[in-house]
């Protein structure tokens, strides 16, 4: 099988292990893809094809699953993943002002990465910390009671 140049040997070994553990049972597909993305960061078509060949699950089906669920991404993310919750509680508490500020400060639309590869900005589904609305996640860490002022301070901690 052709080597996937965008990933290291070590990463691919880990992926192989996952595929082996998961087997060819299609019901294990979503957890397998979740874990693979955990290692590689994203799931480009090349890796989808790779998984398809190894598991005998059709590439079509894998593509269908990857594009259906918002958890999966086919594009690499920047060094830091910044997610702003756009759930109802956060909306009521003014998350739109934060979106506006970020889009203006970084001259970017949500869903994209900054050119220096520092941040990927994404909208998040409710993370269940609505009591602390508005909520932001940076690399999975939850920040609550966000304000336009605290935003800069927090982002500055991530290089």
């Amino acid at each position: 099988m052709e080597k996937l140049s965008e990933f290291t040997d070590e990463q691919m070994q880990q992926v192989d292990k996952l595929i082996e553990a998961s087997g060819t049972n299609p019901s294990g597909l979503i957890p397998l893809l979740e874990k693979t993305q955990g290692i590689l960061g994203y799931l480009p078509p090349s890796i989808q094809q790779y998984i398809s060949e190894k598991t005998k699950i059709s590439a079509n089906r894998i593509y269908g699953v990857v594009t259906f669920y918002s958890y999966f991404t086919t594009k690499p993310r920047a060094r830091h993943r910044v997610q702003l919750c756009l759930g109802t509680a956060c909306y009521v508490k003014g998350s739109d002002a934060l979106v506006e500020k970020i889009e203006k400060d970084f001259n970017i639309t949500f869903g994209n990465s900054t050119e220096d590869g520092r941040f990927t900005f994404e909208k998040a589904r409710c993370v269940g910390a609505c009591g602390l609305a508005p909520v932001m996640l940076v690399d999975g860490k939850v920040y609550g009671k966000m304000t336009v002022e605290s935003l800069d301070k927090i982002l500055n901690e991530y290089e």
Binding site: L86, G87, T88, A89, C90, R125, C126, G128, C130, G131
Partner: peptide
């Protein structure tokens, strides 16, 4: 799945 944004009883 608790998909309703703004709800977190189940969590």
């Amino acid at each position: 799945d608790e998909g309703d944004p703004g709800a977190y009883m189940d969590r």
